[in-house]
Each structure stands twice: as C-alpha cells, then as structure tokens.
Simulated assay, not measured.
Amino acid sequence: MPLAIVIIAIVVVLALWFISLYNGIVQKDNRCDNAWQTIDAQLQRRNDLIPNLVETVKGYASHESKTLEAVTQARSAVMSATTPEGKMEASNILSGTLKSLFAVVEAYPDLKANTNFQQLQAELSETENKIAYARQSFNDCVLEYNNAIETFPGNIVAGSKFKTRQGFEVTDASVRQAPQVKF
C-alpha cells in the first residue's frame, strides 16, 4: 500500500511539473505575440504620421519628389506587408528612407523652423524610439521563448507543437548607413 502512494505521489508531482512547464511555454509564446502587437501599433502610428510629414515637406521642397516618393512607397510596403517578417523588412526600409528625408530637410531652414514640421518631426522621432524599444522587447521575448522550447526539459514538453520564432533583425544593410545628401 505505501508503495502505491509513493508511485501516485510521483505521478502527481511529474504531472504538475509537466503542466507548469507547458503553461510557462504558452505564457512566453503569448508574450511574444503581445510584443509583436506593440511593434505593430507603433508602426501604424508612424504610418499615420508620415502623410502629414510628407505634405509639410512638399510645401517647402517640391523639387525633392524622388525622396518623398521613396518615403511614400516604403510606407505603403509596410502597410501592405502581411507577415511579421515582411513588416520587419519593410519597416527597416522605411526607416532608411526617413533618414534620407530628414537629411534633405537640413537644406531648408524655413522648413526646419516651421512649427508643424517640428511637431511632426518630434512625434515621428518619439515613435521611432518607441519602435526601437518595442523591437528590443520583442527580441527579448523571442529569446526567452526560444530558450524555453529548445533547452531541456522544455524541448520535450514543447514537442512539435511549438516552433521557434524569428526575432527582429535588420535584413537590409543599407539602413545601417548614414544617408548621403548631395546638392
């Protein structure tokens, strides 16, 4: 009789341990989803600000249409991307085109002094900072989740149900370069 109680106790402890590990993996997976939704919300905020910024710049720098078109196209690419990976790549390209836009703006002192432009630039800069923070948070969540499902004993509990996730990374090396403005 005491052996049966010991076996039952061991089975119960193992079941609770398994449930605890499984729930921990699910929570980490959900944190990754939440972190991505935060990035997505900030990307949408940036996308909402860009048309106002472009219209303000157009009034001062109408001959810079190539740069403005690039920003508009990059914004459209972010909005039309359907996967997190696609949004990541399109967002990186948009960040690069925005750097080019702000480099062009340096040549227009009246524009830089315009209150609307300053406000839009400040909001966009704040949003870019929030995006950077959200990306870091997302990458931290992905790291924690991937570690949970790839290390022992989590890999046994995760089985084939949970797949590794990809963190946010720069895929276009050109966005790491400072923009060059030529007049």
Rank of each mutant, 00 (worst) to 15 (best):
A107T: 05
S91I: 00
M88F: 04
T83N: 04
A103L: 07
T97L: 01
S91D: 13
T127R: 13
N114G: 06
S80C: 03
A134K: 13
L101R: 03
I93P: 02
K99N: 08
N114E: 08
N116V: 08
S80M: 04
K87R: 11
L111K: 04
S95A: 14
P109W: 10
P84T: 06
L98D: 11
N116Q: 14
S95I: 02
G86H: 10
I131E: 09
E106M: 07
V104E: 06
A122P: 00
L94G: 04
T115P: 02
F117L: 12
K87P: 00
A134H: 10
L120N: 05
D110M: 09
E85S: 15
Q73A: 10
P84C: 08
E123C: 01
D110P: 00
N114C: 06
M88C: 14
N114T: 07
Q119K: 10
K130F: 06
L111D: 13
V104I: 06
K87H: 00
A90C: 00
A81S: 11
G86R: 15
F117N: 13
T83W: 04
L120F: 07
T115M: 09
Q118I: 05
L101P: 08
S91K: 00
T115V: 13
A90F: 10
L111P: 02
M79E: 12
I131T: 09
A122F: 02
D110K: 14
L98A: 14
M88D: 09
Y108T: 07
T82Q: 12
T97P: 01
R135W: 02
K130H: 09
E89I: 06
L120W: 07
K99W: 02
P109I: 11
T72P: 03
Q118L: 08
G96N: 01
F102Y: 12
Q73L: 05
Y108F: 12
V78N: 01
T82I: 04
F117S: 13
L124M: 15
T127V: 14
I131C: 13
L120P: 03
K112Q: 13
S95W: 01
I131G: 14
E89C: 05
K130Q: 14
N116G: 10
L124F: 10
F117V: 09
E106T: 09
A113N: 12
E85H: 14
L124G: 14
R75Y: 04
M79Y: 04
M88V: 14
P109Q: 09
P109L: 13
S91P: 04
